[in-house]
Design a protein around this nucleic acid. Sequence first.
DNA 1: ACAGCTTTTTAGAATCATTATAAACTACCT
DNA 2: AGGTAGTTTATAATGATTCTAAAAAGCTGT
Lengths: 132, 132
Amino acid sequence: MKYTEKLRNSGLRPTKQRVQICNALFDEKKTFHFTVKDLAKKIQNKINSHISLATVYNTVHAFEKKGYLKQIPINSNKIYFDTNVSEHHHFYDLDKNKLIDLNKCDVGPINIKKKINGKKIKSVEVLVKLEN
Amino acid sequence: MKYTEKLRNSGLRPTKQRVQICNALFDEKKTFHFTVKDLAKKIQNKINSHISLATVYNTVHAFEKKGYLKQIPINSNKIYFDTNVSEHHHFYDLDKNKLIDLNKCDVGPINIKKKINGKKIKSVEVLVKLEN
DNA sequence: ACAGCTTTTTAGAATCATTATAAACTACCT
DNA sequence: AGGTAGTTTATAATGATTCTAAAAAGCTGT
């Protein structure tokens, strides 16, 4: 199966539900941003049957831990995920409440001059807020 | 009163509770990060009496709208605020779950090359995740 | 194919942050 | 001082997320 390896690699058995989640996440031509609830709704419309929220949460978190999904740093009481796991950044349109990708090449190199003892940098993420 | 103007400026009457919130927020020598619940607890310890959560939420939001407080862009289901409203960035220590300020001068200039029609940049915020 | 064991799914409950409500209270203006 | 509009408060409502435990499905041996 197309996603068996990805699932096993994330420590998950390739069940019917998880494959459906994979289809919704990784079959798209374009990467996209989502909340878990959005994703669950999308899947249910697509397959025309119910899939438990808990399952979607579990699977999404397993993928995030493995690096197949990323969280988007934005201050909100919802958690936003991104299927684009390449190094990139985001515009956040404050009026439309919408996230827009910024490719790595859209942002000049970022030089972090401060160091913290015994810590290494895992990621550098930029959020650019837009207004009219 | 010390904070009357700040409060009026935010469209708020200078009530006893709001002045107490101001004291907790703006009397500190160092700026700090907080969630609304943290702040409420801090105030209650300090003044040794109860102040309603709703009041703290309202006041904090009014200050944020006016730019006396800033939200910190970090993906979490809690909202983090910062009393440091100057242009600066953050380290996020993933192990300790702690935010650390990065002064503006700790980060080289950031060049956003992409433009969105009819939108202007309101802020550019960098989150640097740290691991061991 | 099947028994037996483990993992997974599920609905629903629990939790936690935040926001809404509406009655009691307070500031402010004259 | 009194009237009006803005505030505080406890509590309820909401909404996202996590937990739970029983039922279902996957996996491994045979």
